[in-house]
Amino acid sequence: MISRKMLVGTIAAAVMTAGMASGAMAETTIGVVAKIGGIPWFNAMEAGIEQEGKARGVDAFMVGPTSADPALQVRAIEDLIARKVDVIGVVPNDAKVLEPVLQKARDAGIIVLTHESTASVNKNYDFELVSAKDLGEAHAKLLAKTTECKGGYAVYVGGLTVPAHNAWADAAVAWLDENCPDMKQVADRFGVAESVDDSRNTTLDLIRAHDDLTGILAFGSQGPVGAARAVEERGLIGKVAVVGLFSAGQGRKLVHSGAITGGYVWSPLEAGRVFVALGKMLAEGGTVSDGDELPLLGKIRLEGSNIFANMPLALSKDTVDGLAEMGL
């Protein structure tokens, strides 16, 4: 029995030492629960959390569940409550599943911050680095600048029922209608932007059908890549602009060849830093109101308990390589 215990102890201890957190307890403790650990997006967020934690003297760390199952996020939050952290941050996989446990956290006097989850109820604040409207408009402005408000354009989304993509598209189209009355949308929205092939084929068809096509707005990770390939194949670089959000690693070559004009996302690294900055501010009794200048976020808009900043991250020739190296 003794030898058995010792064996368990030795091996477990060996496994643990690698994962030991710093022993020193800082003044404020902030735990952020990611959707899933070990993927580039949340690795970047973790880097931001740790970087900002050091800068502000806060004990800040990220908990990354091993799968995107919301049940695992509930467990992680239970443990954070038991650990008596001051602030819990979370990027929910499923906002509704987390409501009861976040309620429990708030009952325990813990400040709750969410990100990418404006619908969450049991939170002090949700913060969005860029609102759907601002993100859509940023793309519209880029398209308008590139095409000088001339010709026709088409809009791709990941699917006609994907709420975020369609909200961005709505905002972009509304801005173009108002500010570029000469530009016309040549066809209804296409739900092709999660497939490179579909986006490419649709773009080839559109080029054939519409001589005046000058731009593609693609919201969906594969849309700009597929559209840009079609533009490249037809030798139309510089004549048909492709604007949208895409993964930097996948699109960097096309950006450098000019086939993709550019686009905007938001930065997980910045989001990680904001969790810490905002969490520390609130833990020290700070308050948020509409129009405030907040650390890192700049001037914000407050709607209910949702904080909207306007800090889109440009995907352009200058930024795409750095982002690709981070794996984004």
Partner: peptide
Amino acid sequence: ASGMNLMGASQHL
């Protein structure tokens, strides 16, 4: 699981 969470170890670990 909870012990490692308490120590702030990675969930993968």
